[in-house]
């Protein structure tokens, strides 16, 4: 492959300057998408800008009740933060379904998001969680909902010179739980046919007060299905509410037909997985009471 320039700046401003100076330059997280695409000749960036030399970009920290996850944090490192695992098990599990241990020791959630694959595993979990990302660019920083980053397969809403600095996961109520499940033809090392993230808040009586359901691999981008969440709010997650949620999920699917699954199969599986995911999130919410 033609050799790009390699930079490893140690400040966020340094990254922005390099990205702004060359519109073909790409940030390098774990490289598990970027290097594969460079080697196959699919892309030939003029420069690669490694994000891993900026101390603040690697690791998980707390700001009050908010978890801040640096964009260069590898997926396996998320598991080392016990508080994060307790508060957002679905997000941590989703990131740790990606590839193999070798891949997860490099892969980041920011790379997963910015590669903009509709089947990216951590993204439905982050969207269900209501996560935002802080984006740095020539005009300063802005905070964006995770679901507003991908716009179509391989394309993001990031402007020239912009990159994701960190994720922010909101504070958690006492009775809250999240989960992510995917369906793949094998048990490991495959791309999701369907992925579902769910995030619930319950009150003391077990009534659902907030619900977010997000789907992967059934549309050109990960989708937040507001109607599916709305079908659960105000209920005790009885069968009727779950059926209404499944109906909303199925209606939101606009999948492709490919070797991994037909349109009909993906739609049916989305419903099945959504129900299971909500049940796990509900158990987790209850278990914290």
């Amino acid at each position: 492959m033609p050799s790009p320039a390699f930079h490893a700046p140690d400040t966020v401003e340094g990254v922005v300057a390099l990205l702004s100076g060359d519109p073909t330059a790409r940030p390098l997280g774990g490289g598990t998408d970027l290097i594969v695409q460079m080697r196959s000749g699919r892309i030939a960036p003029g420069a690669v800008v490694d994000l891993k030399r900026i101390a603040a970009l690697s690791g998980v920290r707390r700001e009050g009740d908010v978890f801040v996850i640096g964009a260069a944090t590898r997926c396996t490192a998320l598991k080392d933060n016990a508080d994060l695992c307790a508060a957002w098990p679905g997000v941590v599990e989703a990131a740790n379904l990606i590839g193999s241990v070798q891949v997860r020791n490099r892969a980041t959630m920011a790379g997963n998001l910015c590669n903009a694959s509709p089947a990216a595993d951590s993204v439905p979990a982050l969207v269900a969680a209501g996560a935002t990302c802080v984006v740095a660019g020539p005009a300063g920083t802005r905070e964006v909902a995770v679901q507003d980053i991908p716009v179509s397969p391989g394309k993001t809403s990031l402007a020239s010179g912009e990159f994701v600095v960190e994720f922010r996961l909101p504070a958690r109520g006492a009775r809250a739980g999240d989960a992510y499940l995917r369906s793949i033809p094998r048990t490991e090392m495959d791309i999701a046919v369907v992925g579902v993230g769910a995030n619930l808040d319950l009150d003391a009586e077990g009534t659902c007060t907030a619900a977010r359901i997000a789907l992967g691999a059934v549309a050109p981008t990960v989708v937040l299905v507001e109607a599916a969440g709305a079908a659960l709010v105000g209920t005790k997650l009885d069968d009727g509410a779950l059926s209404a949620m499944v109906e909303a999920v199925t209606a939101a699917c606009a999948p492709i037909d490919d070797k991994r699954g037909t349109v009909a199969y993906r739609k049916a599986m989305a419903g099945v997985l959504a129900k299971r995911t909500v049940q796990i999130a509900a158990e987790r919410a209850g278990a914290k009471a």
């Binding site: 598990t32 594969v36 196959s40 490694d50 590898r74």
Partner: peptide
């Protein structure tokens, strides 16, 4: 494979196993 699928190039980088085909040599500084 050169694409991270097969693991034949597995090495440890700072104590964590990775596919060395998906690490740039310059990152090893």
């Amino acid at each position: 494979c050169g694409s991270g699928d097969c693991g034949a190039c597995t090495v440890e980088l700072d104590g964590e196993m990775v596919c060395s085909c998906l690490v740039l040599a310059a990152e090893a500084e």
